[in-house]
Simulated scan of single mutants.
Amino acid sequence: MNPVTGISLGRIAIGAVSLYDPTLAAKQLMLDPRANPQVPYVTRLFGTREIALGLATLLASGSARRNLVLLGVLVDAADAATGYLATKDGSAPVKAGQGMTAVASGAVVGGLLGLRGRGKKA
């Protein structure tokens, strides 16, 4: 499977879980919704973004698809940086921040590989 397709489907799946059961999604991200009751709200925002980006990428073609993949790489790089910063400022447990950084960094690599391997057909 093309890495871009895999990442797009993964975005949709993660987004759907985040919308349907934000508490479960937060726990999977090793966040504590009991300690911070705003976590489900933010998790739903994240889920909506993921579904929109995943669907738009799957439905696009040509340069529009390439641009959406590049946008996804930028979003994932920002997510990786956010996970890293969360471990440094204590806003998330170290293990949670490291996990989020690792997953987001993997998505960056997958997106870049998809662009590299498929040229403008990403």
Rank of each mutant, 00 (worst) to 15 (best):
M1D: 10
N2D: 14
P3K: 02
V4W: 01
T5L: 12
T5I: 13
T5E: 10
G6R: 10
G6L: 14
L9V: 15
I12R: 08
A13P: 03
I14N: 11
A16K: 07
A16L: 15
A16S: 15
A16I: 13
V17C: 03
S18H: 07
Y20P: 00
Y20K: 09
P22F: 02
P22Q: 02
T23S: 13
L24P: 00
A25H: 05
A25P: 02
A26K: 01
A26H: 05
Q28K: 15
M30W: 12
M30N: 12
L31T: 02
D32A: 02
D32E: 05
P33W: 05
P33Y: 04
P33D: 05
R34L: 11
R34V: 14
A35F: 09
P37V: 10
P37S: 11
P37I: 08
Y41T: 12
T43K: 07
T43N: 08
F46W: 13
G47K: 01
T48C: 11
T48N: 08
A52N: 01
L53D: 02
G54H: 00
A56E: 00
A56H: 00
A56T: 05
L58P: 05
L58S: 08
A60P: 07
G62C: 06
S63A: 13
A64S: 11
R65D: 03
R65V: 08
R66A: 14
R66C: 01
L68Q: 01
V69M: 04
V69G: 03
V69W: 02
L70N: 09
G72L: 03
V73A: 11
V73P: 00
A77M: 07
A77V: 03
A78S: 12
D79E: 10
A81Y: 14
T82I: 07
G83I: 07
G83M: 07
L85F: 14
L85S: 08
A86T: 07
A86W: 05
D89R: 02
D89F: 06
G90A: 08
S91T: 15
S91Q: 08
A92F: 03
A92Y: 00
P93H: 14
P93F: 10
V94A: 11
A96C: 03
A96D: 01
G97E: 05
Q98G: 12
M100W: 08
M100S: 11
M100D: 02
T101C: 12
V103C: 02
V103L: 14
A104Y: 03
A107K: 09
A107H: 11
V108A: 06
V108M: 06
V108R: 09
G111W: 00
L113E: 04
L113A: 12
L113V: 15
L113G: 04
G114V: 04
G114P: 04
G114K: 03
R116E: 06
G117S: 09
R118K: 14
R118P: 00
G119W: 07
K121T: 13
K121Q: 14
A122Y: 00
